[in-house]
Computed example of a mutant assay.
Amino acid sequence: MSPSRNRRTRWVAGSAVALALLFAGAATVASARGEAEAPGPRTPSARSADAGFARDMAVHHQQAVEMSFVVRDATGDEDVRRLAYDIANTQANQRGMLLGWLDLWELPKTAPEGQGPMAWMPDGGHSGHSGHAMQGMEGMDHDGALMPGMATRTELDRLRAARGKPAEVLFLQLMTDHHKGGVAMARGCAERCTVPVERRLAQGMVEAQQSELDLMADMLAARGAAPRP
C-alpha cells in the first residue's frame, strides 16, 4: 500500500472512531440529563422505532465486532488489523449504549411477540436494497442473516477458515455489505426515532460508516478486488 493510502487509512479510521466517541459522549450526557428536545413520548414503547432500532442495531453491531476479531487473528496486515480494531471498538461502545437505553426505558432486548427484526422500518428494511446487502432476508431459511447486510452463517464459516489476503478480501467485502445495511438502518432511525439523542447517534453512524465504506473500497482495489455486486 502506498504511503499516501496508508496515511488515508490511518486518518479515516481514526476520524471514524473520534466521531463515534464524540457522539457517544454527547449521547451519554444527554441521557443522564433526561434530554427531551422534540415532541414525542419521553419513554418509547416496545414497538417504537426507537426501541426497534436499539434492539436490531445491537445485534447488527455484535456481528461486526465478531468479524473484526476473526480477521484480526487471520492476517498480519496492519491496515486491515487497524480497521478491524477501530470497527470493533466503535461498534462495541455503541452497542453498549443501545442496550443501556433499553434498560433505561425498562424495555426487553427481544422484540415483542409477533414483531420480527426490522419491523420498525417500512417493508422491513427491504426498500432500496439489492444484492448481498439483503442476502437471506426473504424466506424462512435466512442462514443467520437477520437484517440488511448481515453475513450468513456460511459466510462467517468461510471467513473463519480464511487466512492472509483471502481473509482480508472476504472481510472487506462482508464488512462493506454490513456497513451498507447498517447505514440504511441508521438513516431509518434518523428519520423515524423520536428520542433526539438516539437520532443524533444514528446520524453519526451514517457519517462514520460512509467514510469507512470509501476506505474499504480503496483497500479492496489495492488487493485487486472490489465490493460484491
Rank of each mutant, 00 (worst) to 15 (best):
P112S: 14
R160G: 07
F171E: 01
I87V: 02
L201R: 08
A222M: 00
L104R: 08
A151G: 00
W120L: 09
M219W: 06
A184N: 05
M175P: 03
Q94M: 10
G149C: 03
H142G: 07
R42W: 14
A167V: 04
M97K: 01
L21D: 11
M150P: 13
A92T: 14
T43M: 03
A51K: 00
M137I: 07
S127V: 09
R7P: 12
A26P: 04
P112K: 08
D77G: 12
A208V: 12
S4E: 12
A226P: 00
E168I: 02
D77Y: 12
M219R: 02
G144K: 02
D79A: 15
R7K: 14
L146S: 12
G124C: 10
Q173M: 00
D177Y: 04
T194N: 08
Q135L: 10
A32N: 02
A111R: 15
E191Y: 12
V206Q: 08
V197N: 10
S127Q: 06
S211H: 04
Q63F: 05
G164V: 09
A119P: 02
S48C: 09
D86E: 12
R55K: 00
V12E: 06
C189P: 04
R153K: 00
L102Y: 05
T43D: 04
G136D: 09
G34R: 13
A221F: 01
A49V: 03
L172Y: 04
A32V: 03
G164C: 08
K109W: 00
A92I: 11
K180P: 02
T154K: 09
S68T: 11
A16S: 13
E35K: 07
L83D: 10
R42N: 09
W105G: 00
D103R: 11
A88I: 11
S2K: 12
F171H: 01
A30I: 07
W11N: 13
W101T: 02
E198V: 14
